[in-house]
Amino acid sequence: MKSYLKPIVLFALIVYGTQYILIAYLPNLVFAIAKYRSGQDLNTVIVAPKTDAKLRRVVLPNPDFVYDACFYDVSKNDLLITGEFPDTTLQYCSLAFYGDNVQPYYVMNNLQGFKRKYSVRLSSVNRVNGCIRVPSKQGAVLMRVLVTDSVQYAKAKRLQGLFKATLLSQD
């Protein structure tokens, strides 16, 4: 290679590599920041107040929803997520599970015929069945409940209180 080409190629490679790393790993950084900004320990439930302009931890909050969240770490224990869906399909409710790149890997909602009481076990180790094998040891679970009037809000508050995260042994 001609001597003047070498630094140009090297420069282009560093530029390409830097922007590739930035784009590939920024979601993990976003997750780490969101986890830090939650101000809660891992594996504990965060019951968010009614969504309004004061909620500034996550961009684009939906004011028609109330949220429960749990940032988890299942490297040493399994985690059991339990709670209830609304007693009507008129009030949309979902549980969404995200990996440490903030991408959803599993979603369940009350329109899909799931039982009203849900119980989901997250694990980082292989099992035959009965639990979800997480794509990364850390992640987040988000419960969304639609609230369009005061009756739905009262129901949503109750469901927020029923959302639990319990650590279990991996044995």
Partner: peptide, 24 residues
């Protein structure tokens, strides 16, 4: 195509954190 397209995945992470998948 989240998870398949790195650029799009990053854009959604930044501008619509904890968005639901398209089926939802």
């Amino acid at each position: 195509p989240l998870g398949k397209d790195n650029l799009l995945t990053t854009q959604v992470s930044l501008f619509a954190l904890f968005a639901l998948p398209s089926e939802e």
